[in-house]
Design a protein around this nucleic acid. Structure first.
Lengths: 348, 348
DNA sequence: GTGAAAGCGCTAACAT
DNA sequence: ATGTTAGCGCTTTCAC
């Protein structure tokens, strides 16, 4: 048992050991491991046996240094707080495990400039590919990634321009469906709280809202639209503002669940009841949406599946670098909870 | 511009380039990078300048392969769903970034046996240390880690025996405080929903509950204690059971916030009001606790700080392998929300 | 089909 | 104080 320079014991089994045990050169062992052709079935068998027998574990550092893969995928997220990201990661994680890949996590929260630095590190061989969940200001480093032909997939980033392979949900349709649902219940004045306006998904949800109003012959009142940023406090604030309107809406559609929770808070603070006095609808269907009372009516994004699909896309891209970048949009679905009902006047 | 075997462009700047540019051997460059002594200030200056000028980024694979550090820390978690983990990671992440470290994420959810496999990978040079949040059945691989003298820190794992360096919160005190608070409000029958019984933190919270009852001369009714697992559904179920008791409690203390949400659900389903008919208290103070209505009264664990402290401990351990393993317990604090009040009979 | 050998970028002796 | 050199474990030509 040897010890490395930090005192850790490192009695590693290398391909040289395997080679000796199997009676072949270690080049052959490498061929077996990487499934390259031209290996005698007998030899392959012996190598495989030696590997399990000696408990061989590949050293990924050496592998990637020698020009192979690192078997690491980078993941860039802003935040882990809301459960939204957690759901997506669950899907990624599962898919990655199947392919024997590991995940390197980068969080950008609070940091401003460092984002491009991590791209440097990552593309220097640390990772074989990169997953980006809802990135902001991605343009800067996406350009670098593209130039280096470094595989990446965007999750839930639907910019206006061509930013490369991406997986998202049908945000427009979700916004349209939720609004139509409220209109169907009899609501005529429907408040809307936007997400971060720079984010494609936020814009699409708003567009869906507008389109639904238009298709049902309802006027678009700019006063009913408040800007939010996908976090709870702006939902609360938007809710307060809308409630204070002389001609207040009978329903509020928040661009995500966290903001919907904020709206719920605002409504209750005024002593109003949900949904009797105010119908509320969210977007995402994070786990918590089922745990609040009354259960939030919302538009479900298939978050876990989005993570799953993004990951398979990325692994595909790593294996076949010269592919056409795909853009996949997964369907959203209205989840009817208990926060919506017909407006008061319609019930009279 | 060269291209590697996967077609990516890899015009890397190595320490050799830096050496040439600065007019020194690349060994000197290495010395500068790693802050080893014996470098002429002039030479150091030239090297540093060359590095920024050429935009040098170290190749961590090569570094760790050559016996240095990988500048990666592994993180083992079960789940990212509840926000609890997210908070801790936020603290870790911040601290890690300061030390230029990266984070490799391993999730054990759903997988049964693979846990020991990741230890193999990790200790083969992929990471310099390991952080474990609330691990279950950790004994198996902790033994391996110890034998290999691989640095690790446990977060929120307070087993009965000596499992090594760890960071936790004062769970006993928190349980004691919450229970005392309820007793102070006038409650005499207080239901309790446990966490996963194998987890040290769950046992401590229960012990704190029992001690508070005892110290205030209240009897311990085993019927009022229900087993949970820290997830919402068992909170709901425990709540239903306690509500159906002929002599139902006037308050319920759930071992964490997610289960407290479940209790709230159960109470409401019976048409009862919170806190008038039933006081509820949780544990953790995850962000969501402030977003439910009424705001959950709970025991705050300093989650972010726990992550922070665990990380500095680990980095310390990486730097000085022969340290004594520390055990740090951070204080919890009662957060008074709106889910507790005096019981009905006391108010009469 | 298989082995020998070069080299990925770096650290850490060992020289000087 | 600095240069030289030997690997770390692996992939990948290039021979045979």
């Amino acid at each position: 048992m040897r010890a490395n320079n930090r005192g850790q014991s490192t009695d590693r089994i290398t391909i040289i050991d395997i080679g000796k045990e199997a009676g072949v050169s270690y080049a052959t062992v490498s061929r077996v491991i990487n499934n390259k052709g031209n290996v005698n079935p007998d030899a392959r068998e012996r190598v495989l046996r030696a590997m399990t027998q000696l408990g061989y574990v590949a050293n990924t550092q050496a592998r990637s240094l020698a020009g192979g893969r690192s078997y690491v995928v980078g993941l860039l997220v802003q935040d882990l707080g809301t459960g939204y990201t957690g759901e997506i990661i669950r899907g990624m994680d599962d898919e990655l495990a199947k392919a024997q890949y590991n995940l390197m996590l980068f969080t950008t929260h609070r940091r401003k400039v460092k984002e491009s630095l991590f791209v440097q590190t990552l593309t220097q061989g640390t990772a074989d590919g990169l997953l980006l969940i809802l990135p902001r200001n991605a343009e800067a480093y996406l350009e670098t990634l593209r130039r280096r032909k470094f595989p990446y997939v965007l999750v839930d980033h639907q910019g206006i321009d061509e930013l490369g392979p991406s997986v998202g949900a049908s945000n427009w349709q979700g916004g349209y469906d939720a609004t139509s649902y409220l209109i169907g219940l009899g609501h005529k004045r429907i408040g809307f709280i936007t997400g971060t306006p720079e984010l494609g998904c936020a814009v699409r949800r708003l567009d869906g809202y507008k389109a639904a109003l238009h298709d049902h012959g309802l006027p678009l009142d700019p006063n009913l639209i408040r800007e939010g940023d996908f976090y709870q406090p702006t939902g609360y604030k938007g809710g307060v503002d809308l409630l204070n309107l002389p001609d207040r809406p009978t329903a509020i559609f928040a661009s995500n669940d966290m903001m919907a929770f904020g709206v719920m808070e605002a409504v209750r603070e005024q002593g109003l009841s949900i949904p009797k006095d105010m119908s509320i609808i969210g977007f995402d269907d994070i786990p918590m949406a089922a745990n609040v009372h009354p259960r939030l009516t919302t538009v479900r994004q298939p978050l876990e599946q989005m993570g799953r699909v993004a990951t398979t896309m990325l692994l595909d891209l790593i294996n076949n670098p010269d592919q056409q970048p795909e853009k996949i949009e997964l369907p959203t679905r209205l989840i009817v909870g208990e926060t919506c009902c017909a407006p008061a006047q319609a019930r009279k």
